[in-house]
Amino acid sequence: MAQVSLLIGFTLILLGLYGALTNRDILRMIVSFTIADAGVNVVLVSVGYMAHRTAPILDSAVPAGQAAARIIDPVPQVLVLTAIVIGLGVTALMLAYAYRLFRLRGSLDISQFMDLKW
């Protein structure tokens, strides 16, 4: 189970990187980055997964006394929670810069932006 979802996450990272490297349209590159982002999140969550255990919530099903034996690792989940929120911030920044670039040149093709190339 954990291995399957690890594999899914890694595949998504590779697909996203491939798209970011091969696309010429800046918006498509940003879409690819969000795909890779989702892949990283899936990998992190599945690292914390343990079979036959429940979500880290101590209700009547999981008495607090035996919590350590019944719940899965909460730390990767906290990490991913923050990563998703920051991911939206990063995407918004990338989109804002992409829009500025479009206004500057009237194009979103990455090969039009040669200023730093030599």
Partner: peptide, 13 residues
């Protein structure tokens, strides 16, 4: 994967 908090965040954001 037993991570309901993360699922909510991902669905909303």
């Amino acid at each position: 994967l037993a991570a309901p908090d993360v699922a909510m965040t991902e669905a909303a954001i």
